[in-house]
Design a protein around this nucleic acid. Structure first.
Length: 509
RNA sequence: GCGCCCGUAGCUCAGCUGGAUAGAGCAGUGGACUUCUAAUCCGCCGGUCGGAGGUUCGAGUCCUCCCGGGCGCGCCA
């Protein structure tokens, strides 16, 4: 850039910069050189890296935290699958991604509220209730009803709890609470908890939807056509106008959703974030434009941020499985958790960018479960913990950091480890900004790889007492780094892992 | 037709918002356990970054067009 201004080649500019800097090198800078087409390389002495160890172990769990969103009240809505049955496996992506994004934002100082929207007032739920009642009466579900076998279990349980004379209304309530209980249960198995389960019915009962409609009418954003009431959203930037009230008098999903988001703002949340599947991307504008029409979208209350994630294609043994909850042919999140460790499931969903469509083959994931990168990282953590244990057993006590000579850490493996550790806070902030938890996964795998290399080439406990001290602290700093990254992703950080047994030829069949 | 996402090694994917010789895992192949746990490490093999233009000192990264794939484009949610 300078070259253009100065009117000479970048290389020449670089030369001049370096000459000018001669003798001015600040602390930690060992030397300055020109390289390539015009790069000025500042060679840092390892001393700056050594200070990382202290920074990490002093901060501990807080190492990497930033203040990018200090004090921001964030309402993060994710999953929000219809309460008509168990979560399907593809939904696991939003479970893992949503929770990790919540952690990322919280690590930047945000006050994050995890919210699940229960879409419990529409036709889907009526169909669900009708299907439940059919099973309850010992009949087949309606033609377009929910065929899943879980409804038969629900019907039996409902009979046991409510008796033989259950009304439709009672079944609707009982059914929803049964499904929600199951959802909570599935989510707890993977370690995700929501602060609020918000029922759409609340909005209707309180008249919130009517209030939204009144506001839009008053602002002149609505009109009648074909017996329905429309939102003139195209004029505000939407792709087309949208129906708010159907000709049969019922309100649309959009009208209800506007009321819902308005409620989140009223409850005090300043920044609203929704995580949606890419199949809903067509509605992003409607919601944002609608909220702006309602006065949300000012400096104090930005319009809702919608994070779109590409869908998960489910397969089993190479065969595509249709995502039909009604047909009852889904692979559920529970199916996955029955076969693989929750940590494996989580990281599987967090390995790649949410912008890429992923294929989830239950058979493949199960078969390759033991090769999942999660164990590679957890093993690094366990090794760090193991070193500390062995040191204790050998009577070696980690001395006060101030007394330890960290400048003894000069091996390339040690410096690589320190460099990665130093980059952690910046990476974390960037991942939060981009809502990209996979960046943490990528960093973490790379960091673990560096540790495994260090472990192999640099023995921690040796006869060299000062070096042993320095390396014990480095191993502890590494453990903290791994533990913190794992925590962001919602994966456990074990102190002990059993050594795998040798592969036995399996010819039992 | 229009909108969003993707196209990088045989496969699955990274690539830090434009920098130096494009990386990792898996697969393949060859090595390393008397030593803090081998769920580990080291080597080799493997690339027209879908294609063509453009901007730039410099493009996998930005712009335009084209090709290919996914998802949308309801008074469904």
């Amino acid at each position: 850039m300078l070259a253009k201004v100065v009117g000479t080649s970048p290389r020449e500019v670089a030369d001049r910069v370096v000459t000018a800097l001669e003798g001015l090198a600040p602390r930690h800078v060992a030397r300055v050189e020109v390289a390539g087409p015009g790069f000025v390389n500042f060679f840092l002495a390892p001393t700056w890296l050594h200070e990382i160890v202290g920074a990490v172990v002093t901060a501990g769990r807080d190492y990497g935290r930033g203040d990018l969103y200090d004090g921001l009240k964030v309402n993060l809505e994710f999953v929000s699958a219809n309460p008509t049955g168990p979560l399907h496996a593809g939904g696991g992506r939003w479970v893992a991604v949503g929770d990790a994004i919540a952690n990322l934002l919280a690590a930047q100082g945000a006050h994050v509220h995890r919210e699940y929207y229960l879409n419990d007032a529409g036709t889907q739920l009526d169909v669900f209730t009708a299907s439940l009642m059919a099973r309850y009466r010992g009949e087949e579900p309606p033609e377009h009803g929910y065929q899943g076998g879980y409804l038969m279990e629900f019907a039996d349980t409902m009979r046991a709890e409510l008796g033989d004379h259950v009304t439709d209304a009672a079944a609707a309530d009982w059914g929803e609470s049964a499904v929600v209980a199951q959802l909570r249960d599935d989510l707890s198995r993977i370690g995700v908890y929501f602060d609020t389960w918000f029922s759409e019915r609340t909005l209707h009962a309180r008249g919130d939807v009517d209030e939204i409609l009144e506001a839009l009418r008053a602002a002149g954003h609505t009109y009648e056509q074909d017996g329905a009431e429309w939102f003139a959203s195209e004029a505000l930037g939407d792709h087309r106008d949208r129906v708010l009230v159907r000709s049969n008098g019922t309100t649309t999903y959009l009208a209800n959703d506007l009321a819902y988001h308005r409620d989140k703002i009223r409850r005090g949340w300043v920044h609203l974030i929704d995580i949606w599947g890419a199949d809903h991307h067509g509605q992003v504008k409607s919601l944002q434009v609608g909220m702006r029409a309602l006065g949300v979208g000012t400096e104090t209350a930005p319009e809702p941020e919608i994070i779109l994630g590409q869908l998960v294609k489910l397969e089993r043994g190479g065969e595509v499985v249709k995502l039909s909850k009604r047909a009852g042919t889904v692979i559920t999140l529970t199916d996955i958790l029955d076969d693989v460790d929750p940590d494996v499931a989580r990281l599987t969903f967090l390995l790649q960018s949410i912008d890429t469509a992923m294929t989830f083959d239950l058979d493949v994931v199960t078969a390759q479960s033991m090769e999942n990168p999660v164990y590679y990282v957890q093993y690094a953590h366990a090794r760090c913990a193991s070193i500390a244990r062995r040191a204790t057993e050998a009577g070696i006590v980690r001395g006060p950091l101030a007394d330890v000579d960290l400048s003894l850490l000069v091996h390339e493996r040690e410096l690589e480890l320190l460099r990665a550790l130093a980059e952690y806070p910046e990476m974390l902030r960037h991942a939060a900004e981009l809502r990209a938890p996979h960046r943490v996964s990528t960093w973490m795998r790379d960091f673990a790889a560096r540790f495994h290399g260090f472990y192999r080439d640099c023995r921690v406990m040796t006869d060299d007492a000062p070096l042993t001290q320095a390396r014990l602290w480095l191993a502890e700093a590494t453990r903290v780094g791994l533990a913190n990254a794992l925590a962001i992703l919602g994966v456990t950080a074990p102190d002990v892992m059993e050594r795998l047994e040798e592969d036995e030829p399996d010819d039992a069949q």
